Simulated assay, not measured.
Amino acid sequence: MSAASWRAASQDVMSDCVDGVLEGVCPNCGGNLVARPIRTAAMLAKNPASTKRVLKAEGCEPKAA
């Protein structure tokens, strides 16, 4: 699978989760979910991306009604 097709497929899955399960609300802070900003090369050099993925043990729970 090419990188472009992987990004497109994962974007669909993320959109389904954001719209369906999370209903557009961040499970960590309760804020709204927006497109992730792009870090400039200078900011990426100053604050590099993490190499460790941190996941909640319980995963993403559907929002209570």
Rank of each mutant, 00 (worst) to 15 (best):
V18S: 01
T40G: 15
T51E: 14
V34H: 14
A41T: 04
P37E: 04
K56C: 12
M1E: 13
Q11V: 09
G30I: 02
N28Y: 04
M1N: 12
E61G: 00
N28Q: 07
T51V: 11
T40D: 15
S2Q: 09
V54P: 00
A4W: 03
V18I: 15
L33W: 01
S50L: 12
P27W: 06
A49E: 08
N47A: 12
P37K: 00
C60A: 11
C29Q: 10
S2G: 15
M14C: 06
L44W: 01
R53N: 13
V34L: 04
R7E: 07
V18T: 05
K46D: 10
E58I: 03
M43P: 02
K63P: 02
G31T: 09
T51P: 00
N28A: 12
G59S: 11
A9I: 02
G31Q: 13
D12N: 11
N28S: 09
V18H: 06
R39N: 14
N32S: 11
R36K: 14
V34P: 01
A64E: 15
A64C: 05
E58V: 06
G30W: 03
N28I: 10
N32C: 02
L22Y: 02
D12W: 02
A8W: 00
V21M: 13
R7I: 10
A41V: 08
A8M: 03
S10M: 08
N32V: 02
V54Q: 06
N47H: 11
N28H: 07
E61V: 07
T51G: 09
L44A: 07
C29I: 04
G24Q: 05
P27K: 07
P48V: 02
A57N: 10
D12M: 07
K56D: 12
D19V: 00
K46P: 01
C17T: 06
Q11A: 15
L22S: 02
G30V: 03
E58D: 15
A9M: 06
D16W: 03
C60V: 10
A4Y: 01
K63N: 08
C17N: 02
A45I: 04
K52N: 04
R39G: 02
D19Q: 09
P37M: 00
S5Y: 14
E61K: 15
N32H: 09
C17Y: 01
C29H: 09
W6K: 14
N28L: 12
R7M: 05
A3R: 11
S2K: 14
T51H: 13
V54F: 03
A65I: 10
S50H: 11
E61W: 00
V21F: 09
A65N: 10
M43G: 00
K63M: 11
V34D: 08
D19I: 01
R39P: 03
G59Q: 10
S2W: 05
L44I: 00
L22C: 12
K56I: 00
A9Y: 09
E23M: 06
E58Q: 12
S15H: 12
P62F: 06
S10H: 08
L33N: 04
P37Y: 00
R53W: 08
L33C: 11
C29D: 12
P62S: 10
K46H: 11
K52F: 08
C26Y: 08
A35V: 12
M43Q: 05
G20T: 11
A64H: 13
G59I: 09
D12A: 15
R7G: 02
R53Y: 11
V34N: 05
D12P: 01
S50N: 13
P48F: 01
